[in-house]
Design a protein around this nucleic acid. Structure first.
Lengths: 103, 103
DNA sequence: ATATAATATTAAAATAATTTGATATGTCAA
DNA sequence: TTGACATATCAAATTATTTTAATATTATAT
């Protein structure tokens, strides 16, 4: 079962919302591993650091919040960690809102 | 334009989420004014106080947050103030999420 | 094995949100 | 008008969240 309040909390920070937008809009992955052809969308920490002007530990902290809420999936990829948006959770969140509030 | 982050923040507190659920589920209004037949759903502060065991100023504070986010409409009604859920904002919120995250 | 690079964790400081009790405002009824 | 009741506001105390800098961990390449 989905924790609506927790998801709302994860979405309630402007930085985290921007991160989610970045993930949703990322067309091609950053930090591709040479020799591998997997170019799935997804971003690594460094992208958020440069795009949002944040230090590394701050990015890491917010990413953890998003992952804990189930909004983002992560996958180690070489020496980087790639992040992907988890649209399933977002859809479940909206479904729950629809039910809870009879929309 | 809708402020997604602000709405998420309003929904991110367990007390406020419960209040929203109460508003969504209220079948008939409390504190009806004698002689008036308007029995639209809606609740007044006293309902939240007794149902959630909260003191008045706390209820008032959280209600203000919900109203400020556009999730709740209020209407003075005799010496009480009645609160109604604003489903339009919730629908707009979900629409925005759908767009922002390509759901 | 060592050096380098990317991310994670930690503890402290800074900031923000919530709770409470006291008081103020507004409405109705007598 | 006064008294009673419902809600609003305020300031202080509490609690939670966020930020930072330092350090630890993990993986890669030489």
């Amino acid at each position: 079962m989905i924790d609506t309040v927790k998801i709302a909390k994860a979405l309630s920070d402007p930085i985290r919302y921007k991160m989610m937008l970045m993930l949703a809009q990322s067309e091609e992955g950053c930090c591709p591993i040479p020799g591998e052809d997997d170019q799935r969308p997804g971003l690594c920490n460094c992208e958020f650091m440069s795009a949002l002007g944040m230090i590394q530990s701050r990015v890491s902290y917010h990413m953890k919040e998003l992952v804990d809420a189930g909004l983002v999936k992560e996958e180690p990829r070489g020496k980087w960690k790639m992040y992907f948006i988890n649209t399933k959770t977002l859809r479940q969140y909206m479904e729950q809102l629809t039910q809870d509030f009879a929309l």
